[in-house]
């Protein structure tokens, strides 16, 4: 097979790469571009550990081929931090102890960020729906939901 040229933006930086058609976005991000904050859990779209924001939408990077994201923009957990400043969600996850083993955390943060970008003022049900595709096997959902809610409330009071 001949390799396919793909241009994509990851965390606001442009990359030009050549991939085989069956290379997943997850593998491109982790193995090729070293964004290892993107985690591989189930590999079949059930756990959400590999969630990234692709052109504004939360997607499982294990369910997208890299050749399909030509000219697209990807945000991983690493891209949430800008110029050394944590995303308010990251700060809240620390403050509310929403991290136990940490494996689901990158995906949770990304799903929450995708939600807040589209809907800055979600209610608890909307928050739950936004993270329904992210499994936390330490079952720390309560703290995670509280952390996300705290960011919403802060935005509201500002």
């Amino acid at each position: 097979m001949d390799k396919i040229s793909v241009e994509l933006t990851v965390n606001r930086k442009k990359y030009k790469i050549k991939v085989e058609p069956d290379e997943r976005l997850l593998d491109t991000l982790r193995e090729r571009l070293n964004f290892t904050g993107v985690k591989e859990g189930c590999s079949i779209g059930e756990c959400g550990a590999c969630t990234v924001i692709l052109d504004g939408k939360a997607v499982n990077s294990c369910m997208v081929y890299t050749f399909q994201v030509d000219s697209s923009e990807v945000i991983t957990v690493k891209g949430l931090e800008i110029d050394g400043k944590l995303d308010p969600l990251q700060r809240a996850f620390i403050d509310y102890q929403a991290v136990q083993c940490g494996f689901c955390t990158p995906g949770m943060l990304i799903s929450a960020r995708a939600l807040l970008n589209q809907n800055p003022n979600p209610n608890r049900e909307e928050i739950k729906t936004a993270i329904e595709g992210n499994l936390c096997r330490c079952t720390g959902y309560k703290q995670i939901i509280k952390a996300i809610e705290s960011v919403v409330k802060k935005d509201r009071s500002e």
Binding site: G45, T51, K57, A58, M63, S111, G133
Partner: peptide, 9 residues
């Protein structure tokens, strides 16, 4: 259907 991630794609 599925999850937000699946519904996006």
């Amino acid at each position: 259907l599925g999850s937000p991630q699946i519904r996006s794609r």
